[in-house]
């Protein structure tokens, strides 16, 4: 395999493998937040704020993988 092919492969793998975990995490966060909302609709506002916060933490990890892919692809 020549280096250019390897680089393309690395970009794809970095993005796809790295985004799997955060995708699962965000799904789990949404799942539990909706469950909490269904059981206790009055706490909607606080659940939403906490959900967005925790989603941001989970998403940050995906963004690291994305940045590695971007740097591999364009720099």
């Amino acid at each position: 395999m020549d280096p250019a092919t390897m680089k393309l492969l690395a970009v794809g793998l970095a993005a796809s493998l790295g985004l799997m975990g955060p995708a699962l995490a965000i799904g789990l966060i949404g799942y539990s937040a909706l469950q909490g909302l269904a059981r206790n609709p009055e706490a909607g506002g606080r659940i939403q704020t906490a959900m967005i916060l925790v989603t941001a933490f989970a998403e940050a990890i995906g963004i690291y993988a994305l940045i590695i892919a971007l740097i591999l692809a364009f720099v």
Partner: peptide, 16 residues
């Protein structure tokens, strides 16, 4: 680090 990369990554990915 996480603040920086989160904002930068999201916005750059959006533009691209």
């Amino acid at each position: 680090l996480s603040f920086t990369l989160r904002l930068f990554g999201n916005m750059t990915a959006g533009e691209i």
